[in-house]
Amino acid sequence: MIRPDAPVLLEICDLRASVEEQPILKGVNLTIRAGEIHAVMGRNGSGKSTLSKVLAGHPAYRVTAGSVHYRGEDLLALLPEQRARIGLFLGFQYPVEIPGVSNLEFLRVATNARRQEQGLEELDTFAFEDLVRERLKVVQMDPAFLERSVNEGFSGGEKKRNEILQMALLDPLVAILDETDSGLDIDALRIVAGGVNQLASAANATLLITHYQRLLDVITPDYVHVMAAGQILRTGGKELALELEESGYDWVDAELERLEASAPEGLAAAQASRTPAEVG
């Protein structure tokens, strides 16, 4: 839902970031207001996950220029855990397994860290069990998953559901969901998308990274952005996704070439950072 007067939750300006001295993000601009749902699409390797991890504060990525403000606050100055506590959530494309750490305990510690920031009381084991059982319904997950180690031995789809369960518990203001739909069967996709819709409100915002229209059929985006070579190349409404579904990304190369021609100093850098697959 677009409301021009809604408060800005996330403001990304000319964000540039490198990994191992290799520039990946090359000037990302994006503004997200409360109540909005954004979709980011783009070819493999275009920098979508990198953007999400830079926002969440992954230590492997170095921000080289630009700024990110979260409700007016300098997000990049905060530790990853602080970002999470104030309401930024990243649903991972590839959630890692953490053997030996109980999922239930993990969820409880995480939830309490967020609640403390929100000024809510800490939940003891019993109160938390009640809450988690209620939130499990959002993703229709079997409580048995709580007894296991975090993501250990979970199937691809189960891991994604566990991500949405965390989102449901952490009550984020800005949720970035990186390909939460991939690896889900048809029913699971409906359940997960239903969960995301259920959690979306006028106060929060969602950034969906996805390759497929089928997700956007269920969660209607207010904006669709196309990412290429570390930039947002084009922004449109939900029809842009349909257009992409129809005609693919061929136009992207022409567009990039045009950009490079108009900004020759960016050319070398842009070329060098593109993988052979992208170039070819």
Binding site: E81, V109, A113, L170
Partner: peptide
Amino acid sequence: QLFYLQSRGIGFEEAVSMM
């Protein structure tokens, strides 16, 4: 793994100690 725990609001030291 550490980043995963941190990105859920768990401080670095607590994350190591949990693991």
